[in-house]
């Protein structure tokens, strides 16, 4: 069956991308070089965009690439450059109590994996969904029932723009 073949390909794709993302994410939180961390973050974000495509969400994937990899990463790199005299690895990027994070993260992960396994078991995603979400549907949603959050979001962005200017301004 063609669909089954495709699914195998998708599964392989998912596996590869997932491994890259997890490795990248681990490097983001362990590397001692801030610029390296930012670059690893790029791989994670790009991987996420690829996963969105697998999930049949092209519009979100494109937005992810534009906003995250395009704008947010540039911001991060600028932030790094503006706040650090020297680009390179640093000794003390971690807290004294960094090990506190391990049990908490492991506990959270265990809880979530148990819950997910329990809740969704081996439920399949619909291989051939009845309604594929397209960009038009998303825009109908945004300017229809979800107009109010959209407005709130616009205000958040406006406030963030003004706030960032006020905060970062030299005076």
């Amino acid at each position: 069956m063609l669909a089954a073949d495709l699914l195998v390909a998708q599964n392989i794709g998912f596996g590869i991308i997932a491994v890259i993302m997890v490795v990248g994410a681990l490097r983001v939180v362990t590397t001692s070089n801030v610029v390296h961390a930012a670059l690893w973050l790029v791989t994670v974000l790009a991987g996420a965009a690829a996963q969105y495509v697998l999930l049949a969400a092209e519009f979100v994937a494109v937005t992810q690439v534009l906003v995250y990899i395009g704008a947010v990463m540039v911001l991060f790199l600028f932030g790094t450059m503006l706040t650090r005299a020297r680009i390179g690895s640093e000794k003390e990027v971690n807290n004294k109590n960094w090990f506190m994070g391990v049990p908490i993260a492991v506990l959270l992960l265990a809880t979530m994996l148990i819950a997910l396994n329990d809740g969704f078991g081996s439920e399949e995603l619909p291989a051939d969904p009845d309604t594929l979400v397209n960009t038009q549907m998303i825009s109908d949603q945004i300017f229809g029932p979800y107009l109010l959050p959209f407005w709130a979001l616009s205000f958040v962005l406006l406030a963030a723009v003004i706030g960032a200017i006020v905060l970062a301004r030299r005076d």
């Binding site: 699914l7 998708q10 599964n11 998912f14 997932a18 993302m21 997890v22 994410a25 681990l26 983001v28 939180v29 801030v34 961390a37 994670v44 996963q51 697998l54 999930l55 991060f76 932030g79 790094t80 706040t83 640093e90 003390e92 990027v93 971690n94 807290n95 960094w98 090990f99 506190m100 994070g101 391990v102 908490i104 993260a105 492991v106 959270l108 992960l109 979530m112 994996l113 997910l116 396994n117 969704f120 078991g121 081996s122 439920e123 399949e124 995603l125 291989a127």
Partner: peptide, 30 residues
């Protein structure tokens, strides 16, 4: 594809992020 494979990937990334928030000292890394 399973629903769970995506959800679990999300869970793993989430926990890595939580670890980062707790462990990192540099504000940009947080």
């Amino acid at each position: 594809m399973l629903v769970n494979q995506f959800l679990m990937l999300g869970a793993v990334l989430f926990c890595i992020g939580v670890y980062g928030v707790i462990a990192r000292r540099n504000a940009v890394l947080v």
